[in-house]
């Protein structure tokens, strides 16, 4: 089996193999990046070139920031941004607090409510979002929470899946440590704040980032719960601007001085909404990779 000739073909195959992998990976990355590149290019090109389909890869004509100038002057974009930052910061905070408060008792096997609370939380994981859509809306309505910012923060205060992830992480911490602290007279709350949380930095960062991204990207329930445009998050504004493409009267007056500008504005709005995520993404990527495998380890 070790003919010199055989080995040689083996090397040749290896070279072809390496080239093929490089080719396909570059192709895939190109397909995934292209829509973003195109969107950025279209947002800073000459609007006429965009409408006439002359932009394919790179910006056409001198850099044109007209779309951004119009967007920066638009109140709905700014209020959308401010609302999204508000919902993301406080929403994620509430998410983490509820998740920690649930996960800690759920991780203490000697706790007399251990079995109850674990079943109580796990059951809700199996109920489909579609089935709950109408009843949840009616509950929010009957609690008089419709059209309040509070509804956005509180209705999705925790995802059972992340609670269970954090519980599994807490259970991985050495049990004797808690017991030693208890014997030294530490209260459960002290143990949680002084011992458990400082040891859970990476897990909390991962879960917090997932909640944060969810908050930043969510549009559906904000669209359902909020009538008042002043409370709309950026994604709802964006949906009206680019997906429905039917701008409100106020929009027409402020935004589209011409139909050609309207095209560039759509692309500019997409860039503005995605920019914050694109900027912080490379720094937080490792936590996401961790998060994706967290669930599969425990099964």
């Amino acid at each position: 089996m070790t003919h010199p000739s055989g080995k040689k073909t083996g090397y040749k195959i290896d070279t072809i193999y390496t080239i093929l992998i490089g080719f396909f990976i570059t192709l895939i990355c190109g397909i995934m990046l292209y829509p973003f590149l195109f969107t950025i290019s279209a947002s800073i090109s000459n609007p006429d070139a965009v409408v006439r389909n002359q932009v394919t890869f790179f910006p056409k004509g001198p850099v044109n920031l007209e779309a951004y100038k119009i967007l920066f002057k638009n109140n709905r974009i700014w209020s959308g941004y401010a609302n999204t930052i508000f919902y993301t910061v406080f929403g994620t905070l509430i998410n983490l607090i509820i998740t920690i408060l649930a996960a800690y008792p759920m991780s203490r096997q000697r706790f007399n409510g251990y079995k109850f609370i674990n079943i109580f939380v796990s059951i809700t994981m199996f109920i489909s979002a579609t089935g709950m859509m109408i009843p949840l809306f009616l509950v929010v309505k009957s609690l008089h929470l419709l059209d309040t910012r509070f509804a956005i923060l509180i209705v999705f205060a925790a995802f059972p899946y992340y609670i269970i992830l954090l519980r599994s992480f807490f259970q991985g911490l050495p049990e004797q440590m808690f017991e030693a602290a208890r014997l030294d007279g530490a209260s459960e709350f002290t143990i949680l704040v002084k011992i458990v949380l400082p040891l859970s930095g990476a897990a909390l960062a991962t879960i917090g980032l997932y909640y944060g991204i969810n908050r930043w990207n969510g549009y559906f329930w904000a669209m359902i719960f909020l009538r008042d445009e002043a409370k709309h998050p950026l994604q709802v504004v964006l949906r009206e601007l680019i997906v429905l493409a039917s701008m409100g009267e106020e929009m027409d007056a402020n935004l589209s001085r011409s139909a050609t500008n309207a095209e560039a504005i759509k692309y500019g709005a997409i860039v503005l909404a995605t920019l914050p995520i694109a900027i912080i993404y490379p720094f937080i990527q490792k936590y996401f990779v961790k998060g994706a495998t967290l669930g599969s380890v425990k099964g």
Binding site: P105, G113, L183, S187, E188
Partner: peptide, 15 residues
Amino acid sequence: ELVDHKALWIMLIPV
């Protein structure tokens, strides 16, 4: 005393 049941239940109230 290894677990303070009452404290854990209090923690669970908002949940």
